[in-house]
Design a protein around this nucleic acid. Structure first.
Lengths: 238, 238
DNA sequence: CGGTCGCTTGACATATGTCAATTTTAGTGG
DNA sequence: CCACTAAAATTGACATATGTCAAGCGACCG
């Protein structure tokens, strides 16, 4: 039933829409639609689909920029309940793709802008979200500009561990909270970290040999010694 | 005269405040105050002065993050009429310092938030500004992750050339629009570009020897061949 | 069962960092 | 205005972390 759409939304209490009163949910449900995107497929790129904004309901979205000769850098990795798109602005030169299978809650940009104008609290939430994105981008600038390969890989593992919590699909969720599947291939990890896939592979091996992590088949990971991993990552933020 | 404060402001038509009607200028003037900061002095750092936001009236502001062992990365360079500070959020771990002598137009954060709430257009302008900051941060991530040292230096020169336009203090402003003083020392350029100061120096020399730029004494620069410089920078954005 | 794809591993190349010596610029006081 | 000093920038010799290229391995899929 269409008007129940938002009432049963799994991210209702954490996404931007939480700024809206329950009384507005029926209105909201009429504007929003779900969209599933398979891993690897584009969500929007270089202006195409530019009239859309969305909340991420499940999965992970990867934002990237490229140079003319093919060098590419992942500039953002977004998880539920984060928001993608640019209200009040044109879409820039960034490409958004599904890193895993993704479920989106989409709005047309003009309609969403209307919502923002009508509900003041929502604009404030959006501003806070954007500040978080900005903080993250800047932390990553520090990583890209100043960290060693080992520190970069360690930092990424900690990031993934944190973000995957909750959206846990691991079998052994019993005692071991630190087993998860990476949402990125080695190539993508390299593109996010400003390294090559070979270097990523070598650093993972180094961490595994030091007994800090265990690598299961391919993307499966267990963090055995989180404290030591944090030391190796030179994390500033505790 | 206090109520003329904003009416005569040099950035009145370009800063966030342009969202306010002229009728609100007297009110605004009562809330704002000017602050001069000498080159190298802190503007706010790690939560101190956290209750302030400001427009940059003149000069350049440098934002940076550091690792525990002293490695530091400049994560933003802001020019007039840009805005610094974080409405609706705590100040994070970023340090803001004056890169040159700086003149700020300051507001207490709670008062500024009140302004934002009262004038809807201003929130939209703020959102657009933040999106620009985010774009810039992400472009810099591409630079830090994927560009060579020469490309990085070339990119920075183009950025400075663009930003210094207008705030030109050069003597020979007659025919030559591409002579300016860098707002950064070699060390700071290195900190912004994720390089060492020696590498920056060498790349500048390479560009000078190729006849693309001319280096005057220390910080003075002339771009002789902008088109070639843009090629070397591998600029994506035209 | 064979082919493709993602990952690992090794040998080697190189861009950039490190360390140290000079030179240039800017600042200060006589 | 001119030494004198300290700071910034340049330059050179050398070290090394990471990239490049190439081979091999394993898992998945038709």
């Amino acid at each position: 039933m269409r008007s129940n759409y938002c009432r049963t939304c799994p991210i209702r209490d954490v996404a931007l829409c939480r700024a809206l009163p329950t009384s507005a949910l029926a209105e909201l449900s009429r504007m929003a639609w779900r969209r599933h995107v398979r891993a690897g497929s584009p969500i929007f790129s270089n202006g195409a689909e530019g009239g859309i904004v969305a909340n991420i309901v499940s999965g992970a979205v990867r934002l990237s920029r490229s140079l003319g000769d093919g060098r590419t850098q992942i500039v953002g990795l977004q998880f539920p309940p984060e928001f993608i798109g640019r209200p009040f602005a044109e879409n820039g030169t960034i490409v958004a793709e599904a890193a895993t299978d993704v479920e989106l809650c989409c709005f047309s940009k003009p309609q969403f802008e209307g919502l923002l104008r009508a509900h003041r609290g929502m604009q404030e939430l959006l501003i806070q979200r954007m500040l978080q994105d900005l903080d993250h981008a800047r932390e990553w600038m520090l990583l890209l500009g100043r960290k060693t390969a080992l520190e970069r890989v360690a930092t990424l593992l900690l990031l993934c561990a944190e973000k995957m919590r909750g959206s846990n699909c691991g079998e052994e969720s019993v005692a071991d909270q630190l087993t998860f599947d990476l949402p990125l291939s080695r190539t993508e990890m390299a593109e996010y970290l400003g390294l090559t896939l070979e270097t990523v592979s070598r650093m993972l091996k180094t961490l595994a040999q030091a007994g800090i992590i265990a690598i299961h088949r391919g993307r499966g990971m267990t963090i055995l010694d989180p404290q030591e991993l944090r030391r190796r990552a030179e994390m500033v933020t505790a």
